[in-house]
């Protein structure tokens, strides 16, 4: 008898019991690597703006490279946050409707917040 109880086709597809393969795991790592650089860059930029007035802060964010990196930072941060919060919820929320409900709620909040952040940067960068 085979030691592996899984269907040979399921094993060949390599998607595991969640039917999702290593997508979640891999995306969490890739966004983490991006965030190592993006967050440190963001912190340095914010520290540079400590005593800046409104116009200086706006002009800094409006610089093309800063705007691009800020948008990348906001999108990546919320993507990474949802992946992490998802695992925490799956591990600790044992009431099914609460689990599914909170998984949907964090996704809605993250998408809205990311869109708000991106729109804010675009408004500053495009000067409206």
């Amino acid at each position: 008898m085979s030691k592996d109880l899984r269907n040979p086709l399921a094993r060949a597809r390599g998607l595991g019991s969640a039917k999702d393969g290593v997508h979640h795991w891999m995306l969490q790592r890739v966004t983490a690597i991006a965030l190592v650089f993006l967050t440190v860059w963001f912190l340095v930029m914010v520290l540079g703006l400590l005593h800046a007035d409104y116009a200086t802060a706006r002009a800094t964010v409006a610089k093309p490279w800063n705007a691009v990196l800020l948008i990348a930072f906001v999108v990546t941060a919320f993507r990474h946050a949802v992946l992490g919060l998802q695992v925490v919820i799956e591990d600790y929320v044992h009431t099914r409707w609460l689990e599914v409900g909170s998984l949907i709620v964090i996704k809605f909040i993250a998408v809205l917040a990311a869109l708000m952040g991106v729109l804010a940067v675009l408004r500053i960068a495009l000067g409206s």
């Binding site: 964010v61 800020l70 906001v74 964090i106 708000m116 408004r123 500053i124």
Partner: peptide
């Protein structure tokens, strides 16, 4: 994750 919402607040305020 919660703190990221505050960053968005800061960006929205700047805009």
């Amino acid at each position: 994750a919660v703190g990221s919402l505050l960053i968005v607040w800061g960006l929205a305020a700047l805009a």
